[in-house]
Nucleic acid binder design. Structure first.
Lengths: 226, 226
DNA sequence: CCCACGCGTTAAGAAACCGTCAAGATCCGC
DNA sequence: GCGGATCTTGACGGTTTCTTAACGCGTGGG
């Protein structure tokens, strides 16, 4: 899922953006000031950032420069400032686009789509490797220890991704079912057993004795790295 | 030198742009209408395009769509129109940015720099060769193993380019549909099946058993090099 | 000891998806 | 306008994937 980080101190705008973006299937992370925004960008790297120029602590341009020091994530700058120079400064600091308040939500969403469209190339490796298999979550590619390709179905990818993104952490039946099948299926633990068995058959050295995809009886599953 | 193609019918604006861009070291090509602009884009492929929405012959959106059929050159749209929908349409047609008239020359230049900054670093090899075919993405030329030329349609080029630029990497249905047909078509997986079949018939040694353009059922397609 | 329960395993039918084809519709140059 | 190329659209059968149900196994409690 595409993650969007919004850095803005206008609570009303934050709320509107969260609703509009979530409705389009984006994952939304909010930050009320520059410091929090920079921390969030490091902690949970977003696929796109929206930054207000008028922040309470740092200047928006400073935030853009700080991000550009280590990331090439698309940045969309918002501002109520009308001067041309502020636009030039923001764009030359490394912003990808500049939108003047007030703006229409439809336009902002279209600009987000335009920015996302440009960032397909091999950016995030997102590779998890163990002694028995190696999985590239971004490329949706899995290979076993011998190096031959392993084919996984959509459901298997979805399950595996949740587990691999949370190494050593228990993921409950409910969490898995809600994420993969939706909120109505939180009791169908049958599905989990079947698909986990398929995953193990494809990835575990000894499927009947899982080494990496472990069961926590009565609770859920977890991925245990080497 | 960076070549900029400006498509606009406002003589005064053309003149101002030519002077301002030339002063910054850009090579400038001017076109007074959409037809001339499209011809110029084919004849002398620019590194960036500036297109006015209100052209005498074609709609600017149509020009953007036509360009996007075979090229991913950055496109900056100019317009005096104020409606939000016209911005959304232009951006979704494949434009990279939208600037409302009247605008400051400094802002336009900053937006040009921002657009150029995004494209320059990630230049992928323009020629992809396998045992069965060889494709020159820049020259839009494909030849089979025997060396005879293969004719591909604009849609086929667009699809093939996305796959070839991301070897071994899965490209989802959504990504392909959004890139080639626009965000409104993200459910028309029918299109993909038809055009992928055509591509395979033209490029694969055994089209019914794809070796290079592979299907990941339920997910998307990927290009697997030798 | 027996039973209830959760888990892993398997297999078969249902559903979704894919490749293929061909008939319109549309767009293009001439 | 005309004719060719390209794209859209709908239908069909084959394949993959998902769902569903049944069974075996081990554990722990009665």
């Amino acid at each position: 899922m595409t993650r969007v980080l919004v850095v803005d101190d206008d609570r009303q705008l934050l709320r509107a953006l969260r609703i509009a973006l979530a409705a389009r299937g984006y994952e939304v992370v909010l930050a009320p000031d520059g410091t929090t925004g920079l921390a969030a960008a490091q902690h949970t790297p977003p696929d796109l950032m929206i930054v207000d120029l008028g922040l309470p602590d740092l200047d928006g341009v400073a935030v853009v420069q700080a991000i550009r020091g280590w990331s090439s994530v698309p940045i969309l700058v918002l501002s109520a400032r009308l001067t041309e120079q502020s636009k030039i400064d923001a764009l030359d600091a490394g912003a990808d686009d500049y939108v003047t308040k007030p703006f229409g939500m439809g336009e902002l969403l279209a600009r987000i789509r335009a920015a996302m469209r440009r960032t397909t190339p091999a950016d995030t490796p997102a590779v998890v490797t163990t002694a028995a298999f190696s999985v590239d979550l971004a490329a949706k590619r899995a290979v076993d220890a011998a190096g031959s390709e392993v084919r996984l179905t959509p459901t298997e990818w979805h399950l595996l991704e949740m587990l691999l993104r949370n190494p050593d952490r228990l993921i409950t039946h409910q969490q898995l079912l809600q994420e993969v099948w939706g909120p109505r299926y939180s009791t169908e633990t049958n599905y989990l057993r079947v698909h986990m068995a398929n995953l193990r058959r494809k990835l575990e050295p000894d499927p009947s004795r899982p080494r990496y995809l472990r069961t926590d009886p009565g609770l859920g599953y977890r991925f245990v790295p080497d």
